[in-house]
């Protein structure tokens, strides 16, 4: 194995946007992977789907806006963002208004997605 293989990495994100520093760290890992021109996709599951809420206002929290960071994903050539459809429905997310376009997947499709990647980085 060498560094030119272009291993496909799936970043799995479970953390809600402002409850843990890992929420931002996981997005940073995805951005860094893309910046180094390695193939990477994102999958938001469980509470992590809350990162896709539209109109996030975290000014009072004194932290950076994660929604704004997510809206920059297409600039990094991260084309594929996926979201756990059941969790999105549970939180009544309006995916059309999400900071980045995300394709909803049912459990079977999520399992299929995981199997098509070389590395799964779960946060």
């Amino acid at each position: 194995m060498n560094a030119t293989d272009g291993k496909r990495t799936l970043v799995l994100i479970r953390h809600s946007p402002y409850g843990s520093s890992l929420a931002r760290a996981s997005v940073d890992v995805a951005l860094a992977t893309a910046a180094f021109e390695q193939p990477v996709n994102l999958l938001f599951v469980g509470d992590g789907v809350l990162q896709l809420l539209s109109g996030q206002d975290c000014e009072a929290l004194g932290v950076k806006n994660l929604g704004r960071l997510l809206s920059s994903l297409p600039l990094y050539d991260i084309d594929h963002v996926y979201v756990d459809a059941e969790a999105a429905a549970r939180y009544q997310l309006d995916l059309d208004a999400a900071p980045v376009a995300a394709l909803p997947l049912d459990p079977g499709a999520m399992a299929e997605l995981v199997s098509t990647h070389d590395h799964l980085l779960g946060f």
Binding site: M1, N2, A3, D5, G6, K7, T9, R14, L22, S26, D28, V29, A32, T33, A35, F36, Q38, H119, L120, L121, G122, F123
Partner: peptide, 21 residues
Amino acid sequence: AGLGQLVDAAASVDRMVSFGG
């Protein structure tokens, strides 16, 4: 080290194993 070192590792290994998260 920067996150590039994580990316570099993922790009060149057979198995990436994460602990915690």
